[in-house]
Computed example of a mutant assay.
Amino acid sequence: MTKHIAARESRESEMSLDQLRGDCARMAPHWVVPAVTAPAPVHHSLIHGVVVPPSSARLLDAMSDYGD
């Protein structure tokens, strides 16, 4: 059995980067992005039941941004 291996050039697309950009620009209007709504702030007294494991607390305490 013989195996025919195609040349790399014939396997790859002949599309240039400029052509790809053009295709993407034409498709962009079809991609609908939902509106992002910011979550409503929650009062601190309503937040309860959050448990931080001791190992995580030590990790944050060791970070200069949080522990100093």
Rank of each mutant, 00 (worst) to 15 (best):
T2E: 12
T2H: 09
T2D: 08
H4F: 13
I5C: 01
I5G: 02
A6G: 00
A7V: 08
A7D: 10
R8S: 13
R8L: 13
R8Y: 11
S10Q: 09
S10E: 12
S10P: 01
S10V: 10
R11Q: 12
E12Q: 11
E12T: 11
E14W: 07
E14M: 08
E14Q: 07
M15P: 00
M15V: 05
S16P: 00
S16C: 00
L17G: 00
L17V: 05
D18K: 07
D18S: 07
L20G: 00
R21A: 13
D23G: 09
A25M: 13
A25D: 11
R26H: 14
M27P: 01
M27T: 08
A28V: 07
P29G: 08
P29W: 12
P29S: 03
H30W: 04
W31I: 15
V32W: 05
A35M: 12
A35G: 10
V36F: 15
T37C: 06
A40L: 14
P41K: 10
V42C: 02
H43M: 07
S45C: 00
G49C: 02
V50G: 02
V52M: 02
V52Q: 01
V52P: 01
P53E: 03
P53K: 04
P54V: 00
S56D: 05
A57D: 07
A57P: 01
R58Q: 11
L59H: 03
D61M: 05
A62S: 06
A62Q: 03
A62F: 07
M63P: 00
M63W: 07
S64Y: 03
S64L: 06
Y66V: 14
Y66F: 14
